[in-house]
Simulated assay, not measured.
Amino acid sequence: MDKFFKAKERGSTQLPWLSSYHSFSFNHYYDPAHMGFGPLRVLNEDHVAPGGKFDTHGHQSAQIISLVTYGTMYHEDSSGHTSLLQPGDYQLMNAGSGITHSEANAKGNEPMGFILLWVLPRHHGGLPNYQYKRFEESAPLQLVASGAPDAQAFLLDQDIHIWQLRLANGGELLHPLQTGWIRRLQLIEGSLTIDHQTLGPGDGMIPAPGNATEYLAGQDSLALVFDVPQHLYQGHIDETH
């Protein structure tokens, strides 16, 4: 049976410079029914006012991915990395044994938006590292990050596949699913119909178990798709490594 998550039912953090919407428990939003999707523990949609900034703060044992959806993001971290990210750019910051960083809206006259993901690693510690990538916007389906080596995708220390889905209005795609895995989709822009369910921006869905998912776009659409093994979804991640 499909599970459907409405955008308006997400938690949120509202500040003068930030509107953040949380699909899973985060910050002051806590709901034991929404704690993550296997090793995916944060799925936030953030909108940052002109000149807004996340002040320097630290992380450990988290693989943090950001996708800029509009505006320009400035990144700076304690490993010496700085970058300017444009719409469609992804960054991966592996916190390892510890890293501090800040993100800011680089423009003082226009807003900035991004999607924030945290994936728990299999193993704790290690040196922090930072990477950024951009994927072809013309490709309907791109592997963004995976626990298996791939020439184009970020390599994560976890059993998870993260896909970027881009479909033009009227586009269709059949997306195979690995046996024994389960899928969750988060729509960022546009309109998608899956199993006769139509999703709008901010909506999420876990399709009924099967060997493929069929997508139909009612508008130009952008989504992120997450695949994890069923045993990680149904059980608990061992965080004692």
Rank of each mutant, 00 (worst) to 15 (best):
M73V: 15
P32W: 04
G202K: 03
L85F: 06
S138W: 05
G218R: 02
L18V: 00
V42H: 03
N211K: 07
L192Q: 07
P176D: 08
P140V: 07
L232H: 01
R41A: 01
D2L: 12
P111Y: 07
L224N: 11
I206S: 07
H28I: 13
D31Q: 09
G11P: 14
D159F: 08
L84V: 06
F54G: 02
G210V: 13
Q178G: 01
I162C: 01
A139F: 02
H236V: 15
L232I: 00
I115P: 06
M35I: 12
I206D: 02
L120Q: 08
L116G: 04
L222I: 11
F4V: 15
R184H: 06
Y21K: 14
E172S: 13
A95R: 00
G126W: 11
H175D: 07
T72I: 09
D31W: 10
N94M: 06
Q230H: 08
G171A: 13
D2N: 14
Y29D: 08
S138P: 01
N129H: 10
A217L: 10
L185D: 09
P32S: 13
L85T: 03
G235C: 15
L84Q: 11
T82M: 15
S138I: 09
A212K: 14
I182L: 14
A145M: 08
A95Y: 01
L192Y: 09
H196K: 14
H81A: 04
Y215P: 05
S78N: 10
